[in-house]
Design a protein around this nucleic acid. Sequence first.
DNA 1: TATAATAAATGTATGTTTTACGTTTATTGT
DNA 2: ACAATAAACGTAAAACATACATTTATTATA
Lengths: 233, 233
Amino acid sequence: MKEQAIDYYAHQAKMYVATDCIVFGFDEGDLKLLIFKRRVDPNKGAWSLIGSFVELEEDVDDAARRVLEEITGLDKVFFEQSKTYGKAERDYGYRCISVAQYALVRVDEYDKELVEKHGAFWYTVKDLPKLVLDHDDMVKDALDKLRRKARYQPIGFELLPEKFTIPQLQSLYEAIYQRELDPRNFRKKVLSLNVLKKLNEKDKTTSKRGAYLYTFDYKNYQKLLLSGFNFEI
Amino acid sequence: MKEQAIDYYAHQAKMYVATDCIVFGFDEGDLKLLIFKRRVDPNKGAWSLIGSFVELEEDVDDAARRVLEEITGLDKVFFEQSKTYGKAERDYGYRCISVAQYALVRVDEYDKELVEKHGAFWYTVKDLPKLVLDHDDMVKDALDKLRRKARYQPIGFELLPEKFTIPQLQSLYEAIYQRELDPRNFRKKVLSLNVLKKLNEKDKTTSKRGAYLYTFDYKNYQKLLLSGFNFEI
DNA sequence: TATAATAAATGTATGTTTTACGTTTATTGT
DNA sequence: ACAATAAACGTAAAACATACATTTATTATA
């Protein structure tokens, strides 16, 4: 019986399996993406997402975490699968499929030296250079997913520091959706969800009056989920 | 330079790549799933999704279409990637990742003989048997995707015959969401989208009065998309 | 020390969508 | 002719979204 099983697998094709990370960050009012200049052939010198081959004994998801940590020093990052790119001809000359995963990173936390050392840069999503292979598609698809997801799941908070103001949160959503939101309505909506904890601290970097800082209230969010209501901005 | 490229790939691991299809159908008021009893080892005799290894020169998406056609005789089926399952230990003894894709099939169109010949059956989603490997997760995840997607994209129509009544459409949505909908509000909502063409024909199988048949109006749907409005039930 | 400037915070009126439920209509089998 | 039944239509109240005006806290500077 074991013989038969081995037989069944034996004459099947094997392929390279890679994972590529679409790493989003939010800085200075803009949605950013972490990309780097390839240092090995093929396509040496071209702009690329960060990625890696998946090792034989490694979960695909872990491979993505490994690469991201190598380059930013961050572990415990929000990760989600975007899509798998499996066209036979996508990687010239080699059969390689890639599982794209997007990550949301707090720009105040990553290791700047490490990022620089690896030749990586934060680029504004609006004016990215051309990327290698099908990486442009990967970015486009991941952005779509991010936008869709951000509407009904509180993932935006993964991109902000622990403490943030409501105008900052608004600015993030404006960057994600690429359109202006009404500050009065935005505040009303977001506060009505009851998932923000108001702190007794103000951020005064953008105004004399200062804006109150908030944190995301994970406990209340769990309650919200259980009660059947859903987060929607 | 080519040398260097070859080198780069040469010492990377290769894996088996499979695709599994979560095939949804709608029949007798229930959401159904096409599963079959495995005829080869490993796991001979266990219930499984239909699937296949991806061939060396074949797009991953095409592999899914190939399997589905082999088993149902159907081509031109709605397909969408669900998720890739890439745990190192998911397939005992062999490193094999699987790209799960869900398909929506019109139950009145598939080739019954062919399905039977392959040992496949339509099971109500509500009481599926235990499936091999991580196929239970695949079904659960695909159902989530289907539910989410059906809310803002008119994919439900892929599961109904060309001509359908509004009560039938409602019954489909009730099966997808596993909850009852108000027939008056459902009708109002779905008609307000302007994507249904009313025919001069009735279906009299469920009532003496008969219900008008409709078709999906792809042209108006395109207009709806362009105008920025969106389909939401 | 009074005042100007500025972003933050609060408020309100109107229009739109959703929800919950009652009534009428077309058809057929008795 | 009439009872039975699903289909189709209608309406009132509540919830939510949108558009826009005003007040407030703070600091720099006149």
